[in-house]
Write a protein that binds this DNA or RNA. Structure first.
Lengths: 152, 152
DNA sequence: TTTGTTGCAAAACGTTTGCAGCCTC
DNA sequence: GAGGCTGCAAACGTTTTGCAACAAA
């Protein structure tokens, strides 16, 4: 994941991917890519779909289909934090970070730690080509901790 | 997560939890707990349900309800590796380990690395009480890599 | 006796699929 | 023009919920 990027660079990567795989360069795909890269944090398919309806006509099916393409060319990453809703996140322009998930309220907090990434990069995993990783810390956030203490 | 444990110890933890929270000690709950602790690797709700049907009559609803209790008292851990099916795993008796998920075939391989655990233990997370963590490495497993190379 | 828990079935939910029409290539 | 891609709606599979009957406390 890199912090310096331009939307054009991202589009270029996507175009290259589409051409290589002999997929078509449809306007829907680029419209979705632009919207996806407007999100700074997490988003899900439903949210993306609703946010696009005002200015672009796309179906949920196309959203899902297109998100899958973005996953394949690693322009986004997919998370599933305990509930059934898949969360997505852009990879370019997002600093490497990990997630703390509150097991009470479900809120997600990000934190960065270069050590984990370095450790994974340095380690050789037998017979496995690592393309990315996710580190989730589950626990209780400050807010819920305070509330719990108040209750007793 | 500890490697030395007895089923009795696990039951005791569960009983203590039920009493504390003023929940009832039903035979179904203990039957499910026993079955859950017979699994060495991952299992899902459906699998657990089907495996119990032969020797104990429980509904899927109760399975889900009970798994949730086990999660609350940390006797199991829940994973969602990309697909929609939640996977569970016992915590006692399972060595600390992380997961490598193949993005092509979905197969999951475990690996252990003490460094990650230590790093997390040593780090102080601002305003967040960590109870456990999950580290997932996504990539391509040996089998899929070989097959892909064969294809070209 | 009270009320938390159960099984059952139906509902809910996010996601996937089938298909006719459309539009890249 | 061929066939990949679209929107739409229906289907899917996992999980949740409502409710009457049951049983732990």
């Amino acid at each position: 994941m890199r912090e310096d990027y331009s939307l054009d660079a991202v589009k270029e990567i996507f175009t290259k991917f589409l051409v290589e795989r002999k997929h078509r360069k449809t306007p829907e795909r680029y419209a979705i890519l632009e919207r996806v890269y407007q999100y700074d944090g997490h988003f899900n398919a439903e949210l993306l779909y609703k946010s696009m309806q005002n200015d672009y006509r796309v179906s949920l099916a196309t959203i899902y289909n297109t998100l899958d393409l973005f996953l394949q060319c690693k322009l986004i990453v997919k998370h599933q934090f305990g509930d059934q809703i898949a969360q997505y996140e852009k990879t370019f322009g997002a600093a490497t970070h990990n997630h703390m998930v509150c097991t009470i309220c479900g809120r997600i907090k990000e934190f960065s730690d270069k050590k984990v990434g370095k450790m994974i990069q340095n380690k050789r995993f037998a017979q496995f080509d690592v393309s990315y990783y996710s580190l989730y810390l589950y626990g209780i956030c400050k807010k819920c901790k305070v509330e719990r203490e108040k209750a007793t």
